[in-house]
Amino acid sequence: MKKHFLIFCCSLLALGAMAQPGISEMQQAQQNLRSTFFSALDCALALAAIFGIIGAVRIYHNWQMGHPRIDEQVAAWFFAAFFMVLAGAFLRGVFGL
């Protein structure tokens, strides 16, 4: 009895899988994304540049004020900008934008 129920459930899953949109619909969705939104990589690079400029100004200010430990701030702002560059490349690769 359990075996028949399992086969029935698997066949229902197979029917649901055949109801998914086809390749032409996926290509149309990708084309719509490409025409509507600008590149995620361009956005990430712009954000990384903003993070870099803001971080440089804050680090320079703290350095001039005589704060003894700015190494953590330098690393934090650098890796924030680096993360944005990698996130943009990742999104570009995932969505194909």
Rank of each mutant, 00 (worst) to 15 (best):
G22P: 11
L47Y: 07
G22H: 09
Q20W: 05
E25N: 09
V85Y: 07
M84S: 10
G16N: 08
L33P: 00
M65N: 12
P68L: 05
F78R: 09
F51Q: 07
A44H: 07
L86P: 01
S35P: 00
Q20Y: 02
L12V: 12
F82Y: 13
I54S: 05
Q64L: 11
G16R: 02
H61I: 13
Q31V: 00
R69C: 05
N32F: 01
L12P: 00
W77V: 03
Y60C: 12
F82T: 07
Q28M: 05
A76R: 15
R58G: 01
F90R: 06
P21V: 05
N32I: 05
S35V: 03
A48T: 04
M26N: 04
Q30P: 00
D42H: 14
A48Y: 01
N32Q: 11
A76M: 15
I59A: 04
M26F: 09
A17M: 06
I50A: 12
A80P: 00
L86H: 04
S24G: 03
N32R: 10
A49W: 04
A48L: 01
Q31M: 04
I53N: 02
A56Y: 10
A46P: 00
A48D: 06
G66R: 00
L33R: 08
T36K: 15
L47F: 09
A89H: 03
L47E: 10
M65Q: 15
M26S: 11
E72N: 14
A14F: 13
V85F: 15
Q30K: 14
F90H: 04
A14K: 01
M84G: 05
A56K: 03
L33D: 02
M84R: 03
V57F: 11
Q64Y: 09
I53D: 04
Y60D: 09
H61P: 00
A80G: 03
G52N: 03
F82W: 11
E25I: 01
E72M: 12
F82E: 06
L47Q: 08
G16S: 08
I53H: 03
L12H: 01
G55W: 04
A89Q: 11
F90Y: 09
M65W: 05
I23E: 11
M65S: 07
